[in-house]
């Protein structure tokens, strides 16, 4: 046993849970996001988080101009989790915060209209000085902050009053599993005993531009903006919370699943229905009773996928049952590990 998860929270579209509670699998709805033309010859469906500006944990007005929606969701969720679980000094001063972010550029930055204007000005300017002046006038001074890769991590630290060790992982769906692996490492070397691990993802054209050409087929491409977090502590077999999980073991590759028996397989990372099916087929070495992927309900969840899968595992595994959690990135690289319900 490597570590124990003692709290989970997630937010996708209207699915929000600060205590990790998830409805039964049978009540999850299929993804009804509309497939739309994104680029010539490319369609994709995106789901967005339903943010509520009146929420008491909604960020300050002065911060909103440099906050991406995925970061706002991560902020609201993490503050709610802190309020519920009462994470105190041990976490805030001596803990760690490891955040994965699978898209740092939001729609306002990748605003095609303003880029079109900027590029047009580059093409029509008579001299370099005019070009730079015109180009500069189209760029918001907030752009470097809106695209700050550690924006989510830094805002979470600011709003939670977190002073400990922290970093940002990016930019694919397995980044959050890498954060989890590093969190286990920090526990092993006794660098931190309470580690908040999580991820957020902005589903939009920029993400699509990074991913679509890596796929053989983009039919049914779907992504969802989301945020999810979980608290990791030193392994503790005595912990037996409602949705708590023990992290048992990381595998190096799929072949290591040969001969393994688990109750569930939770898998994710696909961008299309075909990829989702192929990913399940790749797990043929594993013997399991049930398998679950979020794809049919949400589409790809980027760096938030791990927390969402762990939430499912925390809710649907019974005490003592085990599962393999597996996530694939856009390049086909896999991260996989085994959990047990506490």
């Amino acid at each position: 046993m490597l570590a124990t998860i003692t709290a989970i929270g997630f937010w996708e579209s209207a699915m929000f849970s600060v205590d990790g509670t998830l409805e039964p699998r049978s009540e999850l709805l299929p993804n009804e996001a509309i497939n739309q033309r994104q680029l010539p010859h490319f369609n994709a469906a995106f789901r967005q988080i339903q943010l509520d500006p009146t929420h008491p944990n909604y960020p300050k007005q002065s911060d909103l101009k440099i906050l991406r929606n995925d970061t706002i969701a991560a902020l609201v969720l993490s503050q709610q989790m802190q309020a519920l679980h009462q994470w105190g000094t041990t976490f805030k001063e001596h803990g760690a915060l490891l955040v994965a972010n699978s898209n740092f550029i939001d729609d306002d930055v990748l605003d095609f209209e303003s880029i079109t204007t900027a590029v047009s000005q580059l093409q029509t300017a008579l001299d370099p000085a005019t070009e730079n002046k015109l180009f500069g006038s189209t760029i918001s001074p907030l752009l470097p902050l809106r695209t700050l890769t550690n924006g989510a991590q830094s805002f979470i630290a600011q709003y939670l009053g977190f002073y400990g060790s922290s970093t940002t992982y990016g930019s694919t769906g397995i980044a959050s599993v890498q954060a989890l692996r590093d969190a286990c490492n920090l526990i092993i070397i006794d660098a931190s005993r309470l580690i908040l691990v999580g991820g957020c993802h902005f589903a939009n054209l920029f993400s699509f531009l990074n991913n679509c050409l890596l796929l053989h087929d983009t039919e049914g491409y779907a992504e969802a903006s989301a945020a999810s977090f979980f608290m990791l502590t030193a392994a503790n077999p005595k912990v037996s919370g409602k949705h708590n999980l023990h992290i048992l073991h990381f595998y190096q590759n799929l072949e290591e699943l040969q001969g393994e028996h688990v109750d569930w397989l939770f898998y994710g990372g696909a961008f299309t229905p075909l990829e989702d099916a192929k990913l399940l087929a790749r797990c043929q070495h594993l013997q399991y009773q049930e398998a679950f992927s979020w794809f049919a309900h949400t589409g790809n969840l980027g760096a938030a996928e791990l927390g969402m899968l762990l939430a499912a595992a925390g809710n649907w595994l019974r005490k003592g049952q085990t599962a393999v959690v597996l996530i694939q990135d856009a390049f086909g690289v896999l991260e996989l590990f085994k959990v047990e319900h506490a």
Binding site: I115, S171, T172
Partner: peptide
Amino acid sequence: LNQAIAQLNVHVGKKANSIFNHAD
């Protein structure tokens, strides 16, 4: 712009795109 990006951002092989790439 959409057309321009579609034209310029191509898969060049080696698991890489010409313009938009993951940190990987």
